[in-house]
């Protein structure tokens, strides 16, 4: 095995180790607790979507309509990401 290859493998292993240490030591519980807390107070669990005024902000409660074709399934740009 040549030296350059050993260096490459060491760098990759080092980075992997760093990621695992970060993953194992990150305190996700307190973040989750904060979110649960605000959700409990407001009774709203929808993500804070940064959408235009005419687009639904609270998922599953608000729906948009196409003013020209009210019968048509409404489509907005978030529908591409948020499957309903």
């Amino acid at each position: 095995m040549i030296k350059e290859f050993s260096i490459l493998v060491s760098i990759v292993l080092l980075l992997t180790g760093f990621v695992f240490i970060h993953y194992l030591t990150h305190n996700g519980v307190s973040s989750q607790k904060t979110l649960s807390s605000i959700s409990k107070i407001t009774e709203i669990s929808s993500p804070s979507l940064s959408v235009a005024y005419y687009e639904p902000r609270v998922l599953f409660y608000e729906k948009t309509l196409n003013p020209a074709y009210p019968q048509m399934q409404a489509m907005n740009k978030m529908d591409l990401v948020y499957e309903q």
């Binding site: 970060h22 993953y23 990150h26 996700g28 973040s31 989750q32 993500p47 804070s48 979507l49 940064s50 959408v51 235009a52 005024y53 687009e55 740009k77 978030m78 990401v81």
Partner: peptide
């Protein structure tokens, strides 16, 4: 921004791993 949108107030979310 693809997930949270960018049309209204900018949102900086810290993602939990």
């Amino acid at each position: 921004q693809i997930f949270l949108g960018g049309a209204n107030l900018p949102n900086h979310v810290s993602f939990v791993p």
